[in-house]
């Protein structure tokens, strides 16, 4: 990061770094990412996805993390779900 900071100029002033880090931290704080909260999301996801495919519920993983935005290098909070698919459902309808 220090290497980038050198070239980034204005946007990587320490106050901007602080602000970005803070924003990220606050998303976590405010979301109150308790296990209950994540389990609730997980439950709803399973419900939705199960209409289309059969998934391995036990191996499914869901967590809060941070990632780089595509457009620039700004870090943003992200909800990551790792859902192993067993097989697709036959979608005849």
């Amino acid at each position: 990061m220090d290497f980038f900071k050198f070239f980034m100029g204005e946007s990587k002033k320490s106050k901007n770094v602080a602000k970005e880090r803070l924003k990220l931290v606050l998303v976590h704080d405010r979301a109150d990412c308790s296990q209950d909260f994540l389990d609730a999301i997980k439950g709803d996801l399973i419900k939705v996805i199960s209409d289309y495919m059969v998934i391995d519920e036990n191996e499914m993983e869901i967590r809060m993390t941070r990632t780089k935005r595509d457009t620039d290098d700004t870090m943003i909070p992200a909800l990551v779900a790792n859902i192993p698919i067993k097989h697709m459902k036959d979608r005849k309808r």
Binding site: E10, K13, S14, K15, N16, K19
Partner: peptide, 16 residues
């Protein structure tokens, strides 16, 4: 420090 960009300014904090 705000002027140098080494301290969050009023706007930054109100924003957050």
């Amino acid at each position: 420090m705000v002027r140098r960009g080494d301290m969050m300014n009023i706007e930054d904090m109100l924003d957050i």
